[in-house]
Amino acid sequence: MSRMTRRRLLLGGVGAACALPLAAASRAFAAGGTASADAPRVLTATDVHVSDYPTVEAVRWIGQTLERETGGRLKIRLYHSGQLGREAEAIDMARYGVIDITRVFSGALNNAFPLTQALCLPYVFDSVEHLRRVVDGDVGDAVLRSFESRDLVGLAIYDSSGRCFYNTKHPIAQPKDLHGLKMRVAPSDIFIRLVRLLGANPTPMSLGETFSAMETHMIDGAENNMRSFHSSRHFEAARYWSETRHSYAPDILVMSRASFLSLTPADRELLVRTARESVPVMRAKWEESETLARQGVLDHGIQANEVDLPAFRKAAEPLLEEYRQKPEIGDLYRRIRELA
């Protein structure tokens, strides 16, 4: 069975599974209430990453906790490895209530939810610790609240470490080493424009398409974090990893607002609390698996090198300056830097 056929079958099943709860929720809203507190509910969650990826493990932990706390009345059915499509598709499916929960890269949310742009800007964060201070505080809360404007509920922000460039050609130590390279980027204006500023040719595409694109020389490389570089097995195609750490853009767990409102107030509170409690679970798994991933790619013979960070920061400055001129983004940028 082809991947596309399988996806259509899965989506058909998910749509059918969601139809009854959504219809019941609509009737409850019309009557001025919510779904019955005793009715069992299976929430559908998606992620493009593999089964043992830290964000997948964190959502699995949420499901196990909900099932335990509600005596099996509230559960999560988790589709990992992109079984239900790309992140852009998952965002739309969540907005329209076809699925309930999805974990997505914040860059994929930039256009529809502008406050996420502040988290994706180049060199806005100095380290993972800096990012965590920010997303665990008022800035993180503001970003999560912003999803309500377009039919989503922000549940949690998961960090994903420093994003770096990797390629099939040569080490990258200076921005000039990127000149002329065709580099895969996430479909985000910030990342497209950053790569162009650095002298490379940005090629937006999904994570799942990147390996074959490098093997067939459609692109020369990409940018991502070490854990994804390893789990996607991109290291088998790209032999050069360069520690640019140009972005610490996090991952975000969001939920369909219609699905969220169809839960009882008590279940909503439990879900939000459990999602927030999953953040340290994800971080512990991330730190452990990232160490193993780094050692794994080095053992495979990947050449890793440090870069001239001041040169990269200088090259990215025009993009930062432009976004700082936007009032909301400029305010968040200032608050982020105050926590550096």
Rank of each mutant, 00 (worst) to 15 (best):
T55S: 07
V56T: 14
V56E: 02
V56L: 07
E57Y: 11
A58D: 07
V59R: 05
V59I: 12
W61P: 10
W61M: 13
W61D: 09
I62W: 05
T65N: 12
T65M: 06
T65I: 09
L66T: 14
E67I: 15
E67H: 15
R68Y: 14
R68A: 15
E69P: 10
T70A: 03
T70M: 05
T70F: 00
G71E: 04
G72N: 07
G72V: 07
L74W: 03
R77S: 14
Y79E: 08
S81N: 14
S81L: 08
S81A: 12
S81E: 10
G82Q: 08
L84S: 06
R86I: 13
E87G: 14
E89C: 03
A90W: 03
A90P: 05
I91P: 02
I91G: 00
I91L: 11
M93C: 01
R95H: 01
Y96F: 11
G97I: 02
V98I: 10
V98M: 04
I99H: 06
I99T: 08
D100L: 00
I101D: 00
I101V: 07
T102Q: 00
R103T: 13
R103A: 12
R103W: 06
V104P: 09
F105R: 14
S106E: 01
A108W: 04
L109S: 06
N110G: 11
A112Q: 10
A112C: 11
F113L: 11
F113G: 08
P114K: 10
P114H: 12
P114N: 06
P114L: 07
P114Y: 06
L115G: 03
T116S: 02
T116G: 08
T116P: 04
T116C: 04
A118G: 05
C120T: 13
C120L: 05
L121D: 07
L121G: 11
L121A: 07
V124P: 03
V124K: 05
V128H: 13
E129Y: 09
H130Y: 01
H130L: 09
L131T: 13
L131G: 06
L131K: 12
R132N: 14
R133D: 10
R133N: 13
R133L: 11
V134S: 05
V135T: 09
V135Q: 02
D136L: 05
D136V: 05
G137N: 01
G137P: 08
D138T: 15
V139M: 01
D141P: 11
D141T: 15
V143P: 03
V143R: 08
R145H: 13
R145I: 00
F147Q: 07
S149T: 15
D151M: 09
D151C: 07
L152W: 02
V153H: 02
V153E: 05
V153K: 08
G154W: 01
L155F: 04
L155W: 00
A156C: 07
A156E: 02
I157N: 04
I157G: 06
Y158R: 03
D159K: 09
D159I: 01
S160R: 13
S160C: 13
S160K: 08
S160N: 14
S160D: 12
S160M: 03
S161N: 14
S161V: 12
S161L: 10
S161W: 12
G162K: 11
